[in-house]
């Protein structure tokens, strides 16, 4: 097992100050580890990987790894990623976003990236809250949960990222929690290996901003909650209906093949070139 940490260290930027800026117990570090292992497993070189991140806690993880890293503007990660991928389809473009980033301010970009099937692996690090700005409710904050902008409980319905991605046409949609690292490694590796727009939602706890306001005494309690609450997709149907609604399914929800935008574009360029000969 020793290679795990050693491997990660090989990908870290050691001229950057560690430990990283994230709070104790924040799951973002676990996702970063999983991402590094997936890149390594696929034999991708550091040069061909472009990590594009948004604003918020999730946006901060890009700076720590020795890939080509672009820390963009709030919510616009996927637009930058689209430009990069179309400009150089040989690059492996990974977009790291938070829930507020990807679904509130960047909701429209998210839908369109999925619709046009641009060759980007999108990781949405969903902690159900705006962490960096101090715990305001996001579009994935569950109903009746507390936040600094919903001090009497959230009155709005929340987004289900998986359903949203499915509806927008993403050909690969998967979800895991940071506690289920084996699954996380597997779905990120699969997503990275596939062409087109691949969405991975990662449930990651924010104890500092979400947990403390919502009756989780410690970070560990949040992980325990994931353990109790998350359920593999294929086991879900075995539960009685009312219990199904209480649980969060994890696993692979969609796995289809659809030509990516850059492939289709290349086909057009080819056709035009043939015609001009």
């Amino acid at each position: 097992m020793a290679e795990v940490t050693q491997l990660i260290h090989h990908y870290l930027r050691h001229n950057k100050r560690f430990p990283h800026v994230l709070c104790p117990g924040c799951g973002h570090g676990i996702v970063l580890g999983s991402l590094v292992r997936s890149v390594h497993q696929l034999g991708l070189t550091k040069d061909e990987v472009v990590l594009v991140a948004g604003i918020g806690c999730s946006g901060r993880i890009a700076v720590y790894v020795d890939f080509n890293t672009v820390h963009t503007t709030h919510g616009r990660t996927l637009t930058f990623a689209t430009g990069i991928k179309m400009a150089n389809p040989r690059l492996k473009v990974i977009a790291v976003m938070g829930d507020g980033d990807a679904l509130s301010i960047g909701g429209n970009h998210f839908l369109h990236a999925a619709r046009r099937n641009i060759g980007v692996t999108a990781l949405i690090l969903n902690n159900n809250i705006y962490g960096m700005t101090g715990g305001q409710s996001s579009s994935t904050t569950a109903e009746n949960c507390y936040s600094t902008t919903s001090p009497y409980g959230q009155q709005e319905q929340s987004f289900d990222i998986v359903e949203l991605a499915k509806a927008a046409g993403a050909p690969y949609v998967a979800r895991s929690t940071v506690l289920h690292v084996k699954l996380l490694d597997r779905i990120i590796t699969t997503a990275l290996a596939r062409p087109g727009f691949n969405l991975v939602e990662v449930l990651t706890p924010c104890h500092t901003q979400f947990g403390r306001k919502n009756k989780f005494k410690t970070t560990v309690d949040m992980y325990k909650w994931y353990k109790k609450n998350a359920i593999p997709l294929d086991s879900l149907s075995k539960l009685p209906q009312e219990e199904q609604n209480q649980r969060t399914p994890i696993g692979i929800f969609v796995e289809e093949n659809r030509p990516s935008l850059e492939e289709r574009y290349a086909a057009i360029t080819c056709r035009l070139e043939e015609a001009s000969k």
């Binding site: 594009v52 672009v70 963009t72 503007t73 616009r76 637009t79 930058f80 990623a81 689209t82 430009g83 990069i84 991928k85 179309m86 400009a87 150089n88 690059l91 429209n108 970009h109 839908l111 369109h112 574009y265 360029t269 035009l272 070139e273 001009s276």
Partner: peptide, 26 residues
């Protein structure tokens, strides 16, 4: 029609300039 030309219509102008910046970085 150019060997490496790329045109893309984005969902809005924010996205357009985002994609342009991404392409320029590339």
């Amino acid at each position: 029609r150019l060997p490496d030309g790329v045109f893309i219509q984005m969902e809005d102008e924010i996205a357009s300039l985002g994609a342009v910046i991404g392409a320029s970085l590339a």
